[in-house]
Computed example of a mutant assay.
Amino acid sequence: MRLTAILLLASAAALGVFSYWGLFTTSGRQRFDEMSGMIPFFAGCLAALAAVSSGIAYLIAWRRG
């Protein structure tokens, strides 16, 4: 379960970096313009969901001992 939490956290970090690049940098905004901007936006949403899931998985593993 701890490995799952670590993998989810690593995925959340990668998705978060991609989301930041796509939404907040000049090159990212040029690459994902108009409707394509939804891709990094939803990657950020998925990053948040993965981070929360990672925290829950870690707490479950910690409680089990």
Rank of each mutant, 00 (worst) to 15 (best):
D33N: 10
R63A: 11
W62E: 11
A5E: 01
R2D: 06
I56R: 02
L3P: 14
R2K: 09
R29N: 12
A61C: 03
A51Q: 05
L59E: 00
R63W: 05
V52L: 01
G55C: 03
L23F: 02
D33G: 06
S27M: 09
R29C: 13
S36E: 12
F41G: 15
L9C: 11
G28P: 12
S36G: 13
E34F: 04
P40F: 07
I56N: 00
A48S: 11
T4K: 12
G44W: 09
P40R: 15
S19Q: 05
I39C: 04
L59F: 00
E34D: 04
G37F: 04
A14P: 04
V17Q: 02
T25P: 06
G44R: 08
A61H: 01
L49R: 01
A57C: 09
S53Q: 10
L49G: 01
A47I: 06
A43E: 07
A43G: 08
A43C: 12
A14H: 03
D33S: 14
L59M: 01
V17K: 04
A14C: 08
A50N: 00
A51L: 11
F32C: 08
F18L: 06
W62V: 15
Y58T: 15
P40M: 08
G22P: 07
I56P: 01
I39E: 03
G22V: 13
G55D: 02
R63M: 14
M1T: 12
L23E: 03
S53C: 14
A12R: 03
G44D: 10
F32A: 12
M35D: 08
G28A: 13
F41V: 12
L3N: 15
F41D: 11
A50L: 01
E34L: 06
L23V: 06
W62Q: 13
R63K: 15
G16S: 15
L49K: 01
I56Q: 01
S19K: 05
L8N: 02
W21E: 12
W21V: 15
L59W: 00
L15Q: 05
G37C: 01
L7N: 02
M1N: 13
Y58V: 14
A10K: 07
L3E: 14
L15K: 14
Y20P: 07
V52Q: 00
G16F: 10
V52K: 00
I60F: 06
G37L: 04
M38A: 10
A57S: 11
S54H: 07
M35P: 14
A47M: 07
I60A: 06
A5I: 04
T4N: 07
A14K: 04
Y20F: 11
F18S: 10
S36T: 15
